[in-house]
Nucleic acid binder design. Structure first.
Length: 762
RNA sequence: UGCCCUGUAGCUCAAUUGGCAGAGCGCCAGUUUCUGGAUCUGGAGGUUCAAGGUUCGAUUCCUUGCGGGGCAACCA
């Protein structure tokens, strides 16, 4: 696969790399792209495809294409096919093409198992009652009266549901978790619903019940041996449920885990299926493959190549922040891709006739297809003959009766190059009764035909086509579909439609194009990249789609001169003022807080301790052994808690005595403050005494000579920085400390390092 | 009366896991040019959301506040 400009890193790559290094799945990486076949694929899918398949590729892993077809009412074969086409068009080959519906039988067996284990039950409440019972985001739910139904009864009902003996909505299967769970997804989520009369595009009427997303997704991942299950951000609240189901059916570690990233949004377009459908149904666009659509089909018909789409996905990057990517980035990726493969030819989209008065016989030029700075693709023709006769078409926009400042094109009395030809000077023009220019007159300087004679400097060059030889053509000039950067944030996104998103122009193209393959991509010089519309173009009626325009410095300059540049106003800074750390404490907690503060514990630390009984217990245990409550508070609240990470205090093997010993070692100078974290981590995980931990970790006090050696090494390795420091860049001192700490033995005391550094650098 | 995710340049993302705040795109200049493209060079642009705390040292750890997003479908 072609090399994309790859980002230095993204967090998903980091996670996978860490797992591979740790040998978590014996180094295996298995991804999957899991679309629901209920709509046409778009740029967002493209990024997901790039991410999943690309990541798998990078780590020598596999990636499946799995259709998440658990909802028979919205899904179809047609969509599934479009999705698979998109994957292959983007250049990826799935290790396997699979379907969630392949696993229905297995999922059913697991569901029975959950019922037997008392982890699931058939609920016979109405849909409304279930909704009611779920509570709200701020209030706990209530348990269903069917929650304790005997397993045999649930089993029997489920079997009947499966066979279609119960009408839609009469029963559901629910997991038995916790109706008061702060995460709504965990309040006895539904596993199966009845869709008795639905016709699934693959399983037909075999099933009368269908699994819900959560009860299907992780299981599919597990069956396929997926290692990293990547999905979009809104599923982060589903992750606990994903893991709960895997636990419930007994999938052991190492197993599949879910990670979330932010879906792609692009400036001036919409990406939701609903909105895209509205554009099609309201006739705003010509169809799902209209070149203005952000669909894969649209991009494809526009003439964009998969290389550009992949490049764009890579450039856009991956993170957990919802943002909106500049359209300029997409356009850049497209231009960058086409720049090296599109031959340059000439076409005039808005023609006006130019008569060269001193030319009678046409001149035939040998015009290069490629500019000097592009190396042509292998085997590509290098040039074509071009007839330049007395009359040619030029672009209406390239002639001005009264040229504005900075004009480099034609106007009365001025000179320009006719691209590949000679310099002409405008001698006059004709207009019709409305004042519109109908014809431009010029004389050629034939001496310039073979090159630029000494001392002649003509700034501009305009493109043209022979009026005698050119072929008529229709040009579809596409622009952004929406005139607003974020149409989906509007009350009605349809009000933001850009009326000029498609301009159809009738003009002329040079005859050489009729000899090219129909899917040839061109740059029409000074206009943009084009190709023939794959549906509507015919040899005797050429239709060209603009893939992307060229960057137009002149248009930008005139536009920005017109619109008065508005300066961003500085955001008003709201003074926050001093804060009471105890402000959000309850009455009781506040009392505890005050007592701690009086004893000398820092206020921030006291506030933390007041809300956490377990932590406060540990603190008291430490404080009773050292006579400095402030230090004990800092150690427990900051160092200990950080070292603890995600584990619980109860799981810590470190005692109050151990922590007190650590403080003692710091005080006596036997342990650097810098190494406290490592020692604590060791004590928490392994137990033992503080002294032993220092010993095993080798972070004991470091003698002066070793520090001096590290300092010298650090300074020697960064001579330029030393010079800058000596020249007055004081802030580099911290940099040297860091460099030295990295080289010195683990237990080195930064204060000692600084002392040596100061001496060496003075 | 909640829970989760998340705030770094105009935009999209980095920052060797606590040690000189960077890149691409965009923008502005200059270079080059028979494409106002491309190339090449340079530049501007930062209170790392804010205030406290821990630390020799904080974009990174802690606390609180503020902003953005998500969660109450028998959708995914």
């Amino acid at each position: 696969m072609a090399d994309e400009t790859s980002r230095p890193d993204n967090f998903l790559r980091d996670i996978i790399a860490r797992d591979v290094d740790a040998g978590t799945h014996a180094g295996r990486v298995a991804m999957r792209f899991p679309p629901e076949p209920n709509g046409y694929p778009h740029l967002g899918h493209a990024q997901s495809i790039w991410l999943n398949f690309g990541l798998a590729e990078q780590f020598g892993g596999t990636c499946n294409l799995r259709f998440d077809d658990t909802n028979p009412e919205t899904e179809s074969e047609e969509y599934a096919r479009a999705l698979e086409d998109a994957v292959r068009w983007l250049g990826y080959d799935p290790a396997a093409v699979v379907y969630a519906s392949d696993y229905f039988e297995q999922m059913y067996a697991w569901a029975q198992e959950l019922i037997r284990k008392g982890l699931a039950y058939v609920d016979s409440q109405s849909e409304a009652a279930i909704r009611e019972g779920r509570g709200t985001v701020k209030e706990p739910g209530t348990e269903s009266p069917f929650r304790e139904r005997p397993a045999e009864e649930s089993l029997r009902l489920l079997e009947e549901m499966r066979r279609g003996e119960h009408p839609d909505g009469s029963h559901v299967l629910r997991a038995k978790i916790d109706m008061a769970h702060p995460n709504m997804k965990m309040r006895d989520p539904l596993m199966y619903r009845i869709r008795r009369d639905a016709h699934h595009y693959r399983t037909g009427t075999d099933w009368a019940i269908y699994p819900l997303y959560d009860w299907a997704h992780g299981q599919g991942d597990a069956i396929e041996g997926i290692t990293h299950s990547v999905c979009t951000l809104e599923f982060d609240v589903n992750r606990p449920l994903y893991d709960w189901y895997l636990d419930a059916i007994g999938i052991p570690e190492p197993r599949n885990h879910q990670y979330e990233f932010a879906r792609l949004n692009v400036e001036a377009t919409v990406m939701s299926k609903r909105k895209l459908r509205r554009l099609v149904e309201d006739g705003v666009v010509a169809g799902w493959d209209d070149p203005r659509m952000p669909t894969i089909a649209g991009l494809r018909r526009r003439g964009v190549r998969p290389e550009a789409v992949r490049q764009f996905a890579a450039l856009a990057g991956v993170s957990k922040v919802n943002g909106r990517t500049d359209l300029a980035l997409l356009e850049h990726a497209i231009r960058d891709d086409l720049n090296g493969i599109a031959k340059r030819v000439m076409a005039v989209t808005e023609p006006v006739r130019l008569v060269i008065e001193n030319v009678d016989e046409a001149v035939t030029l040998d015009a290069p297809y490629w500019p000097h700075d592009v190396t042509p693709p292998e085997g590509a023709p290098l040039s074509r003959p071009l007839r330049l006769p007395r009359e040619v078409w030029i672009e209406r926009g390239d002639f001005a009766v009264e040229p504005p400042k900075g004009w480099r094109r034609l106007s009365p009395g001025r000179e320009v190059w006719l691209r590949h030809g000679f310099v002409i000077e405008c001698t006059g023009y004709e207009t019709d009764e409305t004042g519109a220019v109908t014809l431009v007159r010029a004389t050629a300087d034939l001496a310039t035909l073979t090159g630029d004679p000494e001392g002649r400097k003509v700034r501009g060059a305009i493109h043209w086509v022979s009026a005698e030889d050119a072929v008529p053509a229709t040009f579809r000039l596409y622009d952004r579909l929406f005139a607003h950067p974020a149409p989906d944030e509007l009350d009605d996104f349809m009000t933001a439609i850009n009326p000029e998103s498609l301009v159809i122009a009738e003009g002329w193209v040079e005859p050489s194009v009729t000899e090219d393959a129909a899917d040839t991509r061109y740059q029409f010089e000074r206009t943009g990249f084009f190709w023939q519309d794959p549906e509507d173009s015919a040899p005797d009626a050429l239709v060209f789609n603009q893939i992307v325009s060229l960057k137009d410095g002149w248009a930008k300059k005139s536009a920005s001169a017109a619109a008065n540049p508005q300066k961003e106003k500085p955001k008003p800074s709201v003074p926050t003022g001093p804060r009471d750390p105890a402000a959000s404490l309850s009455e009781d907690q506040r009392e505890t807080y005050s007592a701690l503060a009086v004893r000398g514990v820092g206020r921030e630390e006291a506030a933390v301790l007041a809300t956490d009984d377990a932590l406060r217990g540990l603190f008291e245990s430490v404080a009773s052994r050292v006579d400095d409550p402030a230090e004990a508070g800092n150690l427990v609240v900051h160092d200990f808690r950080r070292a603890l990470g995600d584990s619980a205090i109860a799981d810590s093997a470190a005692s109050g005595q151990d922590l007190a010993d650590v403080l003692g070692l710091v005080r006596s100078g036997d342990l650097s403050r810098n190494a406290v974290g490592d020692v604590l981590q060791h004590l928490i995980a392994e137990g033992g005494t503080a002294a032993e931990a220092v010993e095993t970790l080798g972070v004991g006090a470091v003698d002066e000579s070793a520090i001096a050696a590290a300092v010298d090494e650090a300074l020697a390795a960064n001579p330029a920085e030393v010079e800058r420091y000596r020249a007055g860049e004081q802030k580099l001192f911290g940099f040297f400390v860091g460099q030295t700490m990295r080289r010195a033995p683990k237990g080195a005391d930064p204060k000692a390092v600084q002392a040596v550094l100061r001496e060496r650098l003075s």
